[in-house]
Simulated scan of single mutants.
Amino acid sequence: MSFSIQEIAANAVQARVRIRHHIYQTPLIPARQIGHDNDAKVLFKAENFQFTGSFKVRGALSKLSSPTAQTRLITASSGNHGIGAAFASAVLSKELTVVLPKTVLQAKLEKIKSFNVEVILHGTETGQAEQHAQQLAASGSYTYISPYNDAEIIAGQATIGLEILEQLDEIDNVFISMGGGGLLSGIGSVLKTLRPQTKVYGISATNSKALAASIAAGHVIETYHLPTLAEAVAGGIDEDTITLALASSVLDHIIECDEAEILKAVKALATQENIIAEGSAALALAGFNKVANKLTGQTSVIILCGGNVEHDFISRVVCSD
């Protein structure tokens, strides 16, 4: 089944009504230093300040509050979607199992377990965890919830776009990290429907770029997945994912960033902006940094998608050369 960006935008309005009492409308924070050297106005949409530490709770609440989520549920995640889904299951009294790769960050694993959901560890990257959850659902014991390949999940993420348009009169560019494509498809659908002149940049980690490579190929392809600081956006995508068509229709530019560029962006957020963000959030800033010299006089919003980091991660980054 395919969806138009107009349908996603309309669904976002409905999703917002369902989830607004369970989420935090995150601030749009003007940068203190970043962008100033290029005379570019930069603002951070701080989903790292969301109740669960990432935007993923929006999509999870949207899905779990919908009529289609009535039976025993199972989902898969690299961590942040699992946290959001576990939180949603707790506040909405839903039974949930979360499948995670064995490489999940300990801090994210502990947070998921704190909501008393069943946890299964399987595989070494998110795509393998997703495939295992889908196999378990195929047995008939569960209803599977994709972390990105679901219109109601995407509509929840799209509520970020609605908030941005209320918080900011003019927006020239938005920079969004690319994983499975739910965040990109959601925000992009709202902006291209309501503010079509806004340029949408999708930022992909070189070490794990399934969606970017699939968009370039015009169909879903397999890619190698190497370790990345942006682990929350790592892993493969479903062959039938609706995000491929949606992302392709809203994207103006794709930028790839390597590990050194992501690390530099994490450090810049901490030292220049006093913002703690995980690698997947810093990835969006890394993409902005690569084109900042072309954006003089423009207003850009950088989506900080999450801030769930290990306790010593930021200290190591700040002290690095």
Results as ranks from 00 to 15, higher is better:
residue 91 V to Y: 02
residue 35 G to M: 08
residue 102 K to F: 07
residue 87 F to N: 03
residue 23 I to Y: 03
residue 35 G to A: 11
residue 73 L to I: 00
residue 96 L to H: 03
residue 46 A to R: 01
residue 74 I to A: 06
residue 58 R to G: 08
residue 70 Q to K: 14
residue 60 A to V: 11
residue 97 T to R: 00
residue 51 F to S: 01
residue 59 G to M: 02
residue 100 L to P: 07
residue 44 F to C: 04
residue 75 T to S: 10
residue 68 T to L: 14
residue 27 P to E: 13
residue 66 S to P: 00
residue 106 Q to W: 06
residue 40 A to P: 12
residue 73 L to D: 00
residue 66 S to Y: 11
residue 61 L to S: 08
residue 104 V to Y: 02
residue 63 K to Y: 09
residue 88 A to V: 04
residue 81 H to K: 06
residue 52 T to C: 02
residue 55 F to T: 05
residue 92 L to M: 15
residue 91 V to K: 07
residue 97 T to W: 03
residue 108 K to W: 11
residue 96 L to M: 15
residue 43 L to F: 15
residue 107 A to Q: 13
residue 49 F to A: 06
residue 24 Y to A: 05
residue 81 H to L: 11
residue 51 F to Q: 04
residue 28 L to P: 09
residue 87 F to G: 06
residue 74 I to W: 05
residue 29 I to D: 01
residue 86 A to E: 08
residue 103 T to Q: 04
residue 69 A to H: 13
residue 102 K to Q: 15
residue 80 N to T: 04
residue 72 R to P: 04
residue 51 F to K: 10
residue 95 E to T: 07
residue 72 R to E: 04
residue 41 K to M: 13
residue 59 G to A: 04
residue 77 S to Q: 12
residue 75 T to H: 03
residue 83 I to K: 06
residue 57 V to G: 01
residue 88 A to E: 02
residue 84 G to Q: 01
residue 105 L to H: 01
residue 64 L to M: 14
residue 44 F to T: 10
residue 92 L to F: 12
residue 39 D to M: 03
residue 29 I to M: 12
residue 51 F to W: 10
residue 69 A to E: 11
residue 34 I to G: 06
residue 28 L to E: 07
residue 96 L to I: 11
residue 30 P to G: 05
residue 44 F to G: 08
residue 79 G to K: 06
residue 96 L to D: 01
residue 68 T to F: 14
residue 33 Q to D: 13
residue 65 S to H: 12
residue 52 T to Y: 03
residue 56 K to I: 08
residue 37 D to S: 15
residue 40 A to I: 04
residue 105 L to N: 10
residue 70 Q to P: 11
residue 70 Q to H: 15
residue 100 L to W: 03
residue 99 V to R: 11
residue 50 Q to V: 02
residue 102 K to T: 14
residue 46 A to P: 07
residue 50 Q to E: 11
residue 102 K to M: 06
